[in-house]
């Protein structure tokens, strides 16, 4: 058997490498945000860029999200390709006007005449006791509002490839990375936060989900951490003779309906897992797609597993109770296949 040489990178280094390659290729690419300079981004997404490109292209900003995200919009309209970091997605509250009323709507309101080729990069996710204002994913909050592409890659390979796609896209792209999948030394060390990443520039398409495990008995749809939890659950399900197919959504906007519908044609059962709030969210959207276009393929009702509509609590047992994990997925899946 031939061994492929693996070049292992953490999630944060994969993102930083993508940005570096695009900055080398295109002088219009620049990075702005809080602590993106010498610090390299609180979650490491801009590690090493300041040292290579200097303060002219990797700009630390004041704590003024409205002004610097708005400035990215203004600069993008002038043909720059800014990558602007909102440190935690939870902070969108102080600057959402610029994001959803301007970044997302100007191209449409201008009849397509104004292009905003920018990336709004932001950290999402909990599981490390950072409590209600620093632990949300808010996938659906952004995906609900038209005019932004929204991506949330789960592996170092996809983080790099989708970041390059996002930078090259002429539309505004919200690029969410999961803190726990950055592979940072000061958080849980997860195998999933390290992976093979080719050295050269490559793209992973926006709007394509990925079947990360094939199976015949149940489809489990996840994104970022819940994809990894689903994969873990699938191993346990296999021990019980159940073959789970796991789909990593990767993109929320555009959403790859086809991959989901194809999978339930095969498995006839659907479990959707989300680290975001349950109601009005991604799980409901996927369930609606199954109900509208795949109902006759289903042999059991769709099941959903997500944060049960409370803010993320601080204390470890409380937080672990509300977040999805592999055990919960395993139990839901067992119930579903036995229905």
């Amino acid at each position: 058997m031939q061994k492929t040489k693996q070049r292992l990178l953490t999630g944060n280094k994969a993102i930083a490498e993508a940005i570096r390659l695009e900055m080398e290729r295109d002088p219009n690419v620049l990075v702005m945000g809080e602590d993106v300079g010498i610090y390299g981004g609180i979650f490491g997404a801009t590690e090493g860029l300041f040292q290579q490109f200097g303060p002219e292209r990797v700009m630390d900003t004041p704590i003024s999200e409205t002004a610097f995200i708005g400035a990215a919009i203004g600069a993008a309209a002038e043909g720059m390709r800014p990558i602007v970091e909102l440190m935690f997605v939870d902070f969108f509250g102080v600057c959402m006007d610029q994001i959803y009323n301007h970044m997302a709507k100007i191209p449409y309101m201008s009849g397509g005449r104004v292009k905003l080729p920018m990336v709004l990069m932001t950290a999402v996710g909990g599981g490390y006791s950072d409590a209600a204002q620093h632990s949300q994913t808010l996938y659906a909050t952004f995906a609900h509002l038209p005019g932004m592409k929204v991506v949330a890659p789960s592996t170092p390979y996809d983080l790099k490839g989708m970041m390059i796609s996002a930078i090259r896209d002429d539309n505004p792209v919200v690029f969410m990375f999961h803190k726990t999948l950055q592979g940072l030394g000061w958080m849980d060390q997860l195998d999933a936060s390290v992976g093979h990443v080719p050295e050269e520039a490559y793209t992973v398409p926006i709007g394509k989900a990925k079947v990360v495990r094939e199976g015949t008995d149940i489809t489990i749809v996840g994104i970022q951490m819940t994809t990894h939890h689903a994969l873990e659950a699938a191993k346990k399900l296999e021990q019980h003779g159940i073959q789970a197919e796991v789909i990593d959504l990767r993109s929320l906007v555009p959403l790859d309906r086809e991959t989901i519908l194809q999978s339930i044609k095969k498995t006839h059962r659907l479990l959707v897992v989300d680290e975001d709030y349950l109601s009005y969210g991604m799980t409901a959207e996927i369930a609606a797609i199954a109900a509208e276009d795949g109902l006759y393929d289903l042999e059991a009702p769709v099941k959903r597993l997500a944060v049960p509509d409370v803010p993320i609590p601080y204390s470890r047992p409380l937080e672990q109770f509300v977040l999805p994990n592999a055990d919960k997925i395993f139990h839901e899946a067992m119930k579903l296949v036995n229905e």
Binding site: T66, A67, A71, I73, G74, A75, M80, Q98
Partner: peptide, 16 residues
Amino acid sequence: AGIPHALGAALAAKKK
């Protein structure tokens, strides 16, 4: 809301 957009245009003008 237009002030940050002008700020960004001014930034682009300087960068260019």
